[in-house]
């Protein structure tokens, strides 16, 4: 992490993409899992939750970053919470205005964005130390990564749990829904499966790199099969 007083590292594309994949809040940092497990029983719910989180994340990080030199250390957490709560309240009203149906389906989880550790975590760890632009860009990346994870979960759960995607019937009407996928246990199972897959791919990539390095030093080609 860069210190606020030190010279800022330049804004690179990496700041934006880190949150989407390399430091994905759900799959890598395992932050904010409560909404991840609770509202991802359909793609639409996941998407709505993701967008709401992006909004709160970007706005609160922007404000925290803009005010970072005025907020005394002793009251910073209180201030961040007030800022976050403000934007969550705004989202709450806006979603009610957009669609009451959606609001009823997301239930208490909109209000619970306040306590989502991802948002406070980013405010404390990133926005309070980085410039306004960088904070906003990073928050956008993180928010998109969060949404991506939510949609990945929601997609699998809706597909298996209802045979639909975004409300469109994917399989024939004879499809037998896997009820468990819509229920909370389905959230845990699907999250576990995604983590398994992602970690497996990650591990393969690293071991391939190691092999290649070894091969390079020995002047050999990397073999494809390894155990």
């Amino acid at each position: 992490m860069t210190q606020a007083n030190k010279k800022e590292t330049p804004l690179t594309l990496d700041v934006f993409t880190a949150g989407i994949w390399k430091e994905n809040p759900v799959f890598v940092m395992m932050l904010g899992l409560c909404p991840v497990l609770a509202v991802t029983n359909s793609v639409l719910n996941s998407l709505a939750m993701g967008i709401a989180s992006i909004f709160v994340l970007v706005c609160s990080n922007a404000l925290v970053s803009a005010l970072r030199n005025f907020i005394p250390k002793q009251v910073r957490i209180t201030t961040y919470i007030i800022i976050i709560a403000t934007f969550v309240t705004l989202v709450d009203y806006i979603i009610q205005a957009v669609s009451l149906d959606l609001y009823n389906r997301l239930g208490a989880f909109i209000q619970l964005i306040v306590v989502n550790c991802l948002i406070l975590g980013r405010a404390e760890a990133y926005a309070s130390k980085n410039s306004f632009t960088k904070s906003v860009v990073s928050a956008l990346g993180m928010g998109l990564g969060f949404t991506l994870a939510l949609v990945m979960l929601g997609g699998v759960r809706e597909l298996l749990g209802a045979g639909q995607l975004l409300g469109y019937q994917v399989f024939s009407t004879q499809f037998e829904p896997w009820v468990v996928m819509i229920l909370p246990p389905g959230g845990f199972i699907v999250l576990g499966c995604w983590l398994l897959l992602i970690n497996y791919l990650e591990q393969r990539k690293t071991s391939k790199l190691i092999l290649r390095d070894k091969a390079a030093s020995h002047g050999q080609l990397p073999s494809e099969s390894f155990s």
Binding site: I71, I82, Y93
Partner: peptide, 20 residues
């Protein structure tokens, strides 16, 4: 500091509330 932040926050909430 707290008062300023609270005021900004209150202002925002009231504006959006009135609008929605």
């Amino acid at each position: 500091t707290l008062a300023t932040v609270a005021m900004i926050s209150g202002l925002l909430v009231v504006m959006v509330y009135e609008f929605t």
